[in-house]
Amino acid sequence: MERTHNKKSLKERRKHLRNNGTSAEATLWRLISNKKLAGRKFRRQHSVENYILDFYCPSEKLAIELDGERHFTELGLMEDEKRDQRLLQLGITVLRFENDDVFKATNAVLEKIASQFNHP
């Protein structure tokens, strides 16, 4: 049976993305890593099928995506919709934030993430 999560074929790509992330990703990671947000463990650049998620909380089946300019093109919006629908079919909820939100509305971003947790 083929792996669904963290396929070996995507390992180098995940590593590259972790080491070359955006400043918004680095900032959010500092705020949610090491169980800093309500004791939840998050992973960076976690893959599900052929999709690489910016952040993933396995206990909540929650993906967090930080979107830059390319996500707001017609093609980017269509690809994101297809991706989000597939992840939802797999039972994974996707939250999307603009990169700027991490800097300009940090508390709102963290509150929105925490609001998706199933239990305190």
Rank of each mutant, 00 (worst) to 15 (best):
R96Y: 05
K7H: 05
E81R: 11
A63R: 00
N34D: 10
L77V: 02
N99L: 06
E69A: 00
K41G: 05
Y51I: 12
L28R: 07
K11P: 09
I32T: 09
S115C: 01
S59M: 13
L95P: 04
T93M: 12
F117V: 01
L37R: 09
E69Q: 06
I32V: 04
K104M: 11
N19K: 14
L95S: 05
L87A: 08
C57E: 00
I52C: 12
F72C: 02
W29F: 11
T4G: 13
A114V: 08
N99D: 15
D80P: 14
L31W: 10
L28W: 00
G39T: 08
N19G: 11
I64C: 03
L75W: 02
A108N: 15
I92G: 01
N19Q: 15
N19D: 15
E25D: 10
R43V: 13
N50Y: 14
L31I: 01
H71I: 04
H71W: 06
A24D: 13
Q45F: 05
K61A: 11
L37S: 13
F42T: 03
F55K: 01
R44D: 10
D100R: 15
T93Y: 08
L28K: 07
K104R: 15
H71F: 13
I113F: 01
E79S: 04
D101L: 10
S9G: 11
Y56R: 08
K15Y: 14
S47N: 10
F72T: 01
D100L: 13
C57M: 00
E74L: 05
Q116M: 02
G91P: 02
L10G: 04
K61C: 07
L28Q: 02
L62W: 03
N107A: 07
D101I: 13
L77W: 06
I92C: 03
I113G: 00
L95D: 03
R3C: 07
L87W: 07
N118H: 08
R96L: 00
L110M: 06
D100H: 15
F97G: 07
L10T: 07
N34G: 09
L62P: 01
K15W: 11
Q45L: 05
L53V: 06
A114S: 02
N50S: 15
N50M: 14
R14E: 11
E60V: 06
L95K: 03
Y51R: 15
F117I: 02
L87G: 03
L110K: 06
F117G: 03
R86P: 04
Q85I: 08
G91Q: 09
R70C: 12
K11N: 10
D101K: 15
A38K: 15
N50I: 10
T22D: 06
N20D: 04
R3K: 14
F117Y: 12
R18P: 07
K7C: 07
D67T: 12
E69C: 05
I52S: 07
I113S: 01
N34E: 08
V109M: 02
V102S: 06
S9V: 15
N19S: 12
N99P: 14
L90Q: 09
E79R: 11
S47Q: 11
I92A: 02
T4R: 05
F42G: 04
N107L: 07
